[in-house]
């Protein structure tokens, strides 16, 4: 029973993490039907930006920063990756908005490649150790071990998700996003500035991915320039499971995927974890391509 609970908790933890990345995927897809392959790499860049800032900060302050420093760095990294998302959208995607779908997919692959190897050029191809961790303490709840780091991550992730959900559902800007995902043409006629709303969507999605990148660095203690590849795939899987284009669906999908992986790993061994996840993606697309929430919810971003 304890083991079962532990697996559930691990799944929820990993799921919260996937959810942050999956949200960006699903928002961009929902609004312009683009699979942003570079999204996983923006997460990776977030990790590196955090790494640079934390290194500089711990050099300046001469002490290992605490949680507060980490949160400040995370916010700054979110701004940086958000801006990066804007730049990528402006340079690589906007010029091709009327072009065939294949062209845009290929530029997305190109953007992903350029980010990965750009970082490899800037930081070197070897993994970097993160200067600040999330604390090593842990405590027991009903015989299940939770580390402080995990708890902090889940709390931050949940706060960000609630903030995003509120933004999309309650604000004017969120309404514009939902409107564009429904009918971009009508939005143009109604005076919505489609370009700037799309740019804003990229900013938000990339900022969330950046936050996830910093969290990953602080939690796993290590980052490398290819770490966005697998996460990008997993996040997409999560988005598909939940029903791509649907924000709450992405969170649900990420949690489902986290749980599946957690149990799948316990059953088959950790070396099969990724195979299990991607196999599930293919199965899901075969059986229910609209995802869990794809049908019932008509309001999507």
């Amino acid at each position: 029973m304890d083991y079962f609970l532990q697996l559930v908790l691990n799944g929820l933890f990993v799921g919260a993490f996937y959810a942050l990345v999956a949200l960006g995927y699903t928002m961009v897809y929902g609004i312009i039907k683009l699979l942003n392959f570079a999204h996983g790499d923006i997460y990776m860049v977030g990790g590196f930006v955090g790494f640079t800032m934390l290194t500089a900060a711990s050099g300046a302050m001469g002490a290992k920063g605490g949680l507060l420093l980490l949160i400040v760095v995370m916010v700054l990294a979110m701004l940086t990756t958000g801006t990066l998302g804007l730049i990528i959208e402006r340079i690589a995607y906007r010029p091709l908005r009327g072009a065939p779908r294949l062209s845009i997919l290929i530029t997305a692959v190109g953007a992903s490649f350029a980010l990965e190897y750009g970082i490899a050029l800037a930081y070197g191809p070897n993994p970097r150790a993160y200067p600040v961790g999330m604390g090593t303490g842990s405590f027991n709840v009903f015989g299940v071990r939770i580390s402080t780091g995990q708890l902090v991550m889940v709390v931050i992730a949940v706060i960000l998700m609630i903030a995003l959900d509120t933004l999309v559902r309650r604000t004017r800007s969120g309404r514009a996003m939902r409107a564009i995902s429904q009918d971009p043409r009508a939005c143009l006629l109604m005076g919505v500035n489609v370009d700037s709303v799309i740019a804003r969507t990229f900013f938000l999605g990339s900022a969330l991915a950046g936050a996830a990148g910093v969290m990953a660095g602080a939690y796993y203690g290590k980052i490398d320039f290819l770490m966005g590849f697998i996460i990008g795939l997993k996040a997409f899987t999560a988005a598909v499971i939940g029903g791509i284009g649907n924000i709450r669906g992405a969170v649900l999908g990420a949690i489902v995927l986290g749980l599946l992986e957690s149990f799948g790993t316990a059953w088959l061994g950790s070396q099969w974890r990724d195979v299990f996840a991607f196999g599930f993606l293919i199965l899901f697309l075969t059986v229910r391509p609209t995802g869990l929430l794809g049908e019932r919810v008509t309001e999507r971003v």
């Binding site: 340079i91 091709l96 530029t107 692959v109 190109g110 953007a111 490649f113 190897y117 490899a120 050029l121």
Partner: peptide
């Protein structure tokens, strides 16, 4: 090389 390839993909497509 790979960085340039990535940039090239974007440039060629545009």
């Amino acid at each position: 090389r790979y960085f340039i390839f990535g940039v090239l993909l974007i440039i060629v497509m545009i």
